[in-house]
Computed example of a mutant assay.
Amino acid sequence: MLLEKKNAVIYGAGGGVGSALAQAFAREGANVFLAGRTLSKLDAVAQAVSDVGGVAQTAQIDVLDEQAVEVFTDTVVKSAGRIDVCVNVANFADPGGLGKPLTDLSLESFANPVINYTRAYFLTTRAAARRMVAKRSGVILTLTAPLARVPIPAFGGLAPSWAVLEAISRSFAVELGPQGIRVVGIRSDAIPETAVVRNAYSSRASLLGLTREEIQAQTESLTLLRRLPTLTEVTNMAVFLASDQASAMTATFANLSCGSLIE
């Protein structure tokens, strides 16, 4: 198993991606610590982890609350001894900012995802890194999208949000590398299996007079593979990046865009 005896913290664990990551990590032998805003969703994920033979603990945490993040991180270390992997997939997409040109957005709609993604990622990464330094090892992982690199209209503040996360990741990577800590990420195109993507497609469809299926088909047609990534593909890559098999990788984002982004 690639993550045997590893301790993995997952923020945003109650969502579609977070839940899939928790189960994938657990199948590979990791103990998972699930943090999120809705305890009932976290408990459901914990049960799914248990069903695949894993061990999970849950905590209702607001990742925008600095003190709450620090206390939670200390609790994990006291319980498990160390943090080996920290993943933040908390979602802060502003539905009011999707499907509209920037000129029609309020400052609040544009700024909300930029401010919230930046704050959440910085707080959770800093908290984990401070504890990882003591062990001189650890992996910090995040998820962005091709929007961080490719201009696509009508996505509000999401593009700059993800571009900022990638820049912060590189900054952490250069500072933490000498301490044995890797900072990596996945740049995935839309994952249609998730509720977030389905809702985003529905919002764009209603504004453009199309169906959700037509929006998805348009997106798929822009990729070289003529399809979009699956949750399994994303979680498989996350497991690899978090494992020792990727021990030479840091300050980089794996391209899981199915060819919508060519690098």
Rank of each mutant, 00 (worst) to 15 (best):
A145W: 06
K5N: 15
K135G: 06
F253T: 12
V87G: 07
I215S: 05
P151E: 01
A173R: 04
Q47R: 14
A251H: 01
S161C: 04
S247F: 12
R131K: 15
K100C: 07
G180L: 05
S243T: 09
G185F: 09
M1A: 11
T194R: 05
E213R: 11
L241H: 05
N199V: 11
G156K: 02
S106Y: 02
N255M: 07
P95N: 06
K135C: 08
G12H: 02
D189T: 08
D62G: 10
G16S: 05
I186E: 02
S247L: 09
L228K: 11
V77P: 09
A129H: 04
V184N: 06
N31P: 03
I215K: 10
N31Y: 12
F240E: 01
S40E: 03
G185R: 09
A148T: 06
A205R: 07
L207M: 13
V174W: 00
A59K: 14
E28K: 14
Q67E: 14
A26R: 04
A59N: 13
S257T: 15
V69Y: 13
L241W: 09
S40D: 05
A217Y: 02
P192G: 07
T252K: 13
E233W: 07
Y201H: 10
R82M: 12
S40Q: 00
V85E: 06
A46G: 13
V32R: 02
V89Q: 04
A205Y: 05
G259A: 02
S50N: 11
R198Q: 15
V77Q: 08
L210D: 06
T118N: 07
G138H: 00
P229I: 12
T219G: 09
A68M: 10
E193N: 12
L208Q: 11
A59R: 14
T38G: 00
D51N: 15
W162C: 07
E193Y: 01
F253A: 09
E175Q: 04
V164L: 04
T142N: 14
D94W: 02
G180Q: 02
Q245H: 08
P101A: 04
A205C: 10
L141S: 08
F25A: 12
S40R: 03
N31A: 14
G99E: 02
N116T: 15
V77F: 06
L2H: 12
I186Y: 09
Q216L: 15
S109I: 04
V85M: 10
A167V: 13
T75M: 02
G29W: 04
I10S: 10
G99T: 04
L147H: 09
L165C: 04
K135L: 12
D43L: 13
Q245S: 11
L207G: 14
L107M: 08
R37H: 07
G99N: 07
A24D: 12
P113R: 03
V85W: 03
P229V: 09
S109T: 09
Y201E: 03
D43M: 07
L98T: 13
T75F: 00
K41A: 15
Q179R: 03
R204I: 15
V150T: 11
S171T: 03
